[in-house]
Structure formats: C-alpha cells, structure tokens
Design a binder for these strands. Structure first.
Length: 489
RNA sequence: CGGGGUGUAGCGUAGCCCGGUAGCGCGCUUGCUUCGGGAGCAAGAGGUCGCCGGUUCAAAUCCGGCCACCCCGACCA
C-alpha cells in the first residue's frame, strides 16, 4: 500500500525515477503546450540561487548584463551559413502580428548571437571600445522533437554571454576563462564534477570556430552537457560587419565568444545527487538549508516546542545578526500531519538538514539533526547548534562532490579498450570511456551509429590518461587525440 | 514524419469484448481521536467518460472522422 508513495528506484527505471521525482518534489510541472514546463517555486528557488551565484561570478570577471529582444528578423539568422543550417530547423517563427501577416517573419530566438552582434556592430568603432563583455539572462525557444523536464524543453531559461575582442588570442582566453567559471560553479556550488574539453567538429556550435564544454556524468552513467563556451572567431563579425579600427589605424573584424548555461543544470543536479528517497540538494544551492520539524503530543508541548523552534530559527536565521552567515531555516509547523510524514516530504524535496525537536530534546537541551545525504542522525547540544549546523552543511556539500567524483571515476574506463569491449560497455551499464581517436569524422559517425555513444569532448590536460592511447578505438589507425566517449542526454 | 499504444473526478485506474443507475484507491473538505518515520474512524465535496458525428428506445461501451498525449525510431543546450 505504501508503494504508491514510493518513487521508482533508480536501478529499476532511471528515467521514470527522474520524471516522477521532478514532478513529485514540485520542481516543475507539465504545461498545456507539449514540451513546455512550468518551473514551480521549489525548482525556481534552486535556479535563482544558481543565477545569483553565476551572476556574481560574471560580474567579477568583468561582464555587464543587458537585455536583447525575443524576436529576431528571420534574415538575421541567415547571415551566417553554419548558424542557419544548425538552428533553422528548430526555430519557432512568428508570421502574424496585430491580425496581419508580417512583411518579414520573426524568429523567436533560439540563441542571440545574430541580434547581439548586429548591435555590437553599431557600438564598436575603435579598439578602445573593446573588449565588450556582455551577458544576458533570457528565455530561448528551440522546437525539439523529444522533450524532458529541465533537460530538453521547447522553451528554457539560460544566460548567454557574448563578447567582442580585438585579437584572436584574447577571444580564446575569454572562451577558456568562462569555461573555467562554469567548472568552478558546477563543482563548487552544484557539487557536480565535470570533465572539460574541446568538442569535435561534428559536435561544435553552429557558427563557432571551436566549442568547449563541461560534461557531467549522471547516475545512469550517461553524460550531460552542462555548459558550453564558444570561440566564434570572426564568423559573426563578418556576417554582421562588426569591425573596428586597430591601434595601427587598420580596419579589422572583431573576435567573438559566446557561452551559456541553462535550467538544464537543475536536471543535472537531480540526476547527480538524487537518491531513491528523492532529491538531494547541495546546501549552497538549497532554498531551505534546514527544516525544523517540531514534535509534540499535547497542546502544552506544542506551544513550548514551536516557541523553541521559532527561537532557533530567529537566532540562526535573523537577517541583521548573522549576515552573511545566516542560515535559511524553515519551521514546519503544519498541524494534522504527523512528523513521519513530514520527514518523507522534506526528504523528497532534498532539504540538506532536518532538525527534529520535541519535549524530550528540550528537557535535555538538545536537538536531533539528520543529514539528507547520509541520513545520519544524532543529537547536538542547543547552545552550539549554529556551529554544528554550519559544520554539517559544509560536510554535506563536500561529501556530495566527493561521492559524485568517486562514482564518476568508478564508472570511467581508460587504457586500451577493444572496440568489442567498448560495444559491450555501451550496450550494458555505460561509462565514460577515454580512448584514442584517429580524428576522422567517419569513425566518429560510425561509432555513434553502432553504439549511440558520441565524443563528449577531447578532454583537457588534467582529465587525460597518464599514458596516452596510441590507436583509434574503431579503425586502429594512429590516434591523434584522446577522446571521451559516452552516451549523452 | 514512420511503427505501436492510450484518452473515464486533481492523480492512478475498473467498467468497454457482451449497450441499460459511472465504481474503486490516493488526494481534498469537516469533526473527533492521534502525533519521536508515510495515522484511525465518521460524514462530505468533486464527472460534458478527449472532441464531432452516426447506429439505437437507450452509447463510457458499437461504427466513422478528428484531436491530444505517451512509448520506440530519425534530430537535439
């Protein structure tokens, strides 16, 4: 009878587990339009914290926010050949406005390179106007065939950074710098370890010179592309006549970069840390860090326990006194729901720490704290509870990252792998496989066709194997690059 | 767009083959008893049976058309 209340387990049905968890934890809900989602307060609260942190990091690296329009003239998209080829099939197009057919259809932005660089062209004249470092928080629409909450929806929220530089080297530095910012954020705040590296030609952004990405391993051993950073070269500058006068007085095209992360990260968070009891949120991103569940029998006890809970919340969470170390605490004072039911609910929602407090605890001057990650439960003295909570939260944050990293390493395969073995792996549990690649798009395409696995990236130094693979995974020719292979979302 | 499937209360479903009062579980409301790991009892509220048409005295049920959604393929942050 309790089965209805339980989630499917990850081992049974990973994608069923994900779908139900997202809905039951009230992170998001299905919208009336196919492929669209409503992000509910629980999910939006996590996104808001992601935004706040990333926004600070963008500002620290010298970027400013701006906002460009949702609607883009269709002709803009067509100015960059690769770009239109990549995005045209998945655009939504507005053909009518005010009851009349428009002279030129308007595309709902699938990404904003075109409109942003067209504006940059107006603003940049001299090398003195560079670099121009802009970010925007926006929604974009891509008409995907198969959608899943957070991972792939027709409309999603993201940030897109767009910059213009005087030299190629500067643009490349910027591209790598922002990839590093993403990695810091994903590991430091999301506790989600990533492999960074360069995309192969077939996987790079439509219109880019080079694309770099952060690839995270989900608990089903599939890869999630969690963020991308593109060196656009002068491709868009040429398309939109984004020129500037150099110090030497010559006219040159600017060098652009663009980089983005989206609400997809919320899905990555779920699939990295969630367990069979529900979501597990890293403390730094949890809208509520500690939930207090008061326990009582009589009205008298109730009054006493709730008063104590409110006092704890106030002393640890009060704005004036503890900022910036104040804690985000919620007291679950709902009546008519037994404590056990509340435990399950807050576990499903992934709140990092639960405090149970009842008359027995108050008499003993203590409260019981339960970790969401390990479910470890023990009493702590009330007079130093603030310190205990801070320690536990930071232990949880660290443990989540370590656990995720250990899991990824345990499911990574390095060294010489035969193609036969590779196929077994991809047919079975999957893995991150680091293997040699001859560099041909043909081998890459064949492998994708035969195994569904793709090159997630050509990993950066620190992720490469100690001994470089010598031959291509499939054709056996000389390897020109070590590639990270996996099935992807 | 090709193949398969499903539409009945907020959610999950039974009933359809064989036409005749639309049922169950969860959730919701109210009251009482409960409350340290998903409470119990009692009384309630809630339905154009996806839509349109046909057959029939009578359609959730049979027939036709349409729509939507889900799963599997081709495409993807």
């Amino acid at each position: 009878m309790a089965d209805e209340k339980k989630l499917p387990t990850r081992a049974q049905d990973f994608s069923g587990w994900y779908n139900e968890l997202v809905v039951r934890a009230e992170l998001a809900d299905y919208a009336p339009v196919r492929g669209c989602m409503v992000i509910r307060p629980n999910g939006y609260g996590i996104w808001e914290r992601m935004q706040r942190q990333l926004d600070d990091m963008f500002k620290e690296t010298g970027h400013q926010n701006a906002y460009f329009p949702l609607l883009i003239p269709q002709s803009f998209l067509q100015k960059e050949a690769q770009h239109v080829e990549g995005f045209a099939p998945e655009t939504a197009v507005v053909t009518h406005g005010g009851g009349k057919e428009l002279d030129e259809p308007l595309v709902i932005r699938p990404t904003s390179e075109t409109i942003i660089y067209s504006m940059f062209a107006k603003w940049v004249q001299s090398y003195r106007d560079l670099p121009l470092l802009i970010n925007q928080w926006a929604n974009v629409v891509r008409w995907e065939m198969r959608t899943r909450l957070f991972l792939r929806t027709l409309e999603f929220l993201w940030q897109e950074g767009h910059t213009a530089h005087a030299t190629e080297a500067e643009a490349e530095d910027e591209t790598r710098r922002m990839l590093g910012v993403y990695r810091d954020f994903m590991e430091g705040w999301m506790a989600m370890p990533v492999v960074t590296g360069r995309k192969s030609e077939s996987e790079k952004f439509a219109g880019a010179l080079r694309t770099y990405s952060c690839e995270a391993m989900m608990q089903d051993n599939k890869a999630l592309q969690a963020g991308t950073s593109h060196n656009l070269g002068q491709n868009f500058a040429r398309a939109f006549d984004l020129t500037f006068q150099t110090e030497a007085g010559e006219l040159d095209f600017a060098w652009n970069t663009s980089w983005g992360v989206s609400t997809r990260m919320v899905g990555g968070l779920v699939m990295t840390h969630g367990d069979d009891n529900g979501l597990v949120t890293p403390p730094l991103l949890a809208p509520i860090e500690v939930v207090i569940v008061p326990i009582y029998r009589t009205d008298e006890d109730r009054e006493r326990v709730i008063a104590a809970a409110m006092k704890i919340k106030e002393s640890l969470g009060a704005w004036e006194r503890r900022s910036p170390a104040r804690l985000r605490i919620h007291v679950d004072a709902r009546e008519g729901i037994k404590p056990g039911a509340k435990y399950y609910e807050w576990e499903l929602r992934g709140i990092p720490l639960r405090m149970e407090i009842g008359p027995r605890d108050l008499d003993a001057g203590q409260a019981v704290l339960v970790r969401r990650d390990t479910r470890e439960k023990r009493p702590y003295p009330l007079d130093t509870i603030g310190e205990s909570i801070h320690e536990l939260l930071s232990a949880i944050q660290d443990n989540l990252l370590e656990t995720a990293r250990a899991r990824r390493e345990a499911n990574s395969v390095r060294g010489d792998v035969t193609y036969e073995r590779f196929r077994e792996i991809m047919d079975g549990d999957g893995a991150f496989v680091y293997a040699g690649w001859c560099g041909s798009g043909e081998c890459e395409a064949k492998i994708k066709e035969e195994t569904k696995a793709t090159i997630r990236c050509l990993p950066d130094d620190e992720f490469r194997s100690a001994v470089a693979p010598t031959s291509c995974l499939r054709c056996g020719e000389k390897s020109v690059a070590e590639a990270l292979w996996a099935k992807a979302y």
